[in-house]
Nucleic acid binder design. Structure first.
Lengths: 223, 223
DNA sequence: ATTTGTAATACTGTATACAATATATATAAT
DNA sequence: ATTATATATATTGTATACAGTATTACAAAT
């Protein structure tokens, strides 16, 4: 007997379904920054009770997507220029740590998966959907995070990336950005393959800084 | 009219009370690693309903103090040597970032508060309680975190420190450790006062690495 | 016109009840 | 004796009800 395991994810408690639904809605702008999240009306809309909605909202708060005030309720977080800068400032040093660790610990199997990801990405650059590219991008970085063999780092970095999801379409929208993305990933991959720390760090920094630039140029903030 | 603001913290919802209670219990070892957290029995013990207990447990999970499995429940996280190493690995680079930013942005007022903290600490070294020293230690670092003017960084670093609370007594227990702690804080303070990044980084690294050593020497892990 | 007081309303906070699932126990079958 | 099956029990997941608190609207007073 082999490879038989329950796909526990299929069980997905309601709160997680609600969570995913709301997160998508926020990221896609269906619920706007500053808009209030009323438990009862969300529950009615989604056809569930308040309990899972409450728990989902709390999860969203820890991801920084909503802000809660006691006895007043929750609203979609307004992300300011400063907030984004703060997130990137932290991500920057953690991404550096991540590739350094990955250089030491990445397995051949993980390298193979990165290569496969690059191929898929390449195939998607011109004809793939934004959603496809977005998840490939996410997947690429998750592989590297996991290669660090540091759960805490994986958790924090994944979280920080999620807080920038709202802006991911910016650098996936145009063909030129897609090509840049691919070439930067390739560069990171090659550096990791060679286990060259300095090169890896340089590549990841370039990647991050480019994304920051792309976002800053294309977004104008409310506040 | 000036400086009048409601101390909203005094309202403290039940879930936060429960959260604090449980956290203290875990940190102090009243609830042991691996022990299950049963909602209903905790609720009965504390004289509240399941709802605030549930929410408190979820908060504890995001702090890494408990581990939850869907439909099975929560248990106090078993912290392994590896876990602690992982936390410190991340903290290390973030603490470096923090002092670098603090060098640039710390205000005279914050420096004054650090100095005051050092005086209080000095007064406590020989005769203070472990709890006094612990909160002074926490306060010292919180001032530096806040000096970075990066909310995200403050949030993550505070969180990572909390995950090591269980071990704080190790380096507060003995007089020699207390003295070391004070002199290291002094060194960090002086470097920040001079706005000397290299010196600050060196001082904070020494501080972290010393703590790691102290903990590693004094704790033996279950797993 | 501005402030104050009061009531109505809309929420969140908390408790509780019920449903679904996992775990433990006991019994029967081989 | 071991496995399989059934049953009871414990515990989480979800829904709902009620209590307490904020917000709003509006009337009364100055």
């Amino acid at each position: 007997m082999k490879d038989i395991s329950l796909k526990i994810e299929d069980y997905l408690p309601l709160r997680d379904v609600v969570f995913n639904t709301l997160r998508d809605a926020i990221i896609n702008g269906d619920i706007e920054p500053g808009e209030r999240l009323i438990e009862i009306s969300l529950a009615d809309t989604l056809g569930v009770s308040r309990t899972p909605v409450r728990e989902a909202i709390r999860e969203l708060e820890t991801e920084g997507l909503v802000v809660m005030t006691p006895r007043k309720g929750a609203e979609v977080a307004k992300i300011s220029n400063k907030d984004l800068t703060d997130v990137l400032e932290v991500r920057r040093v953690l991404e550096v740590l991540a590739v350094e660790l990955a250089c030491e610990k990445i397995t051949p199997e993980q390298l193979a998966r990165l290569e496969e990801n690059l191929n898929d990405f390449d195939a998607c650059v011109s004809k793939g959907s934004a959603s496809d590219l977005s998840s490939l991008d996410e997947n690429f970085h998750e592989i590297i995070y996991n290669a660090t063999d540091n759960k805490r780092l994986v958790q924090i970095l994944s979280n920080l990336r999620k807080q920038m999801y709202r802006y991911r379409f910016v650098y996936i929208k145009t063909l030129s950005h897609r090509k840049t993305l691919h070439s930067e990933h390739l560069e990171i991959f090659n550096a990791l393959k060679e286990k060259d720390k300095a090169k890896s760090v340089a590549a990841i920094l370039k990647h991050i800084d480019n994304q920051k630039k792309a976002i800053m140029e294309n977004i104008h903030f409310d506040c």
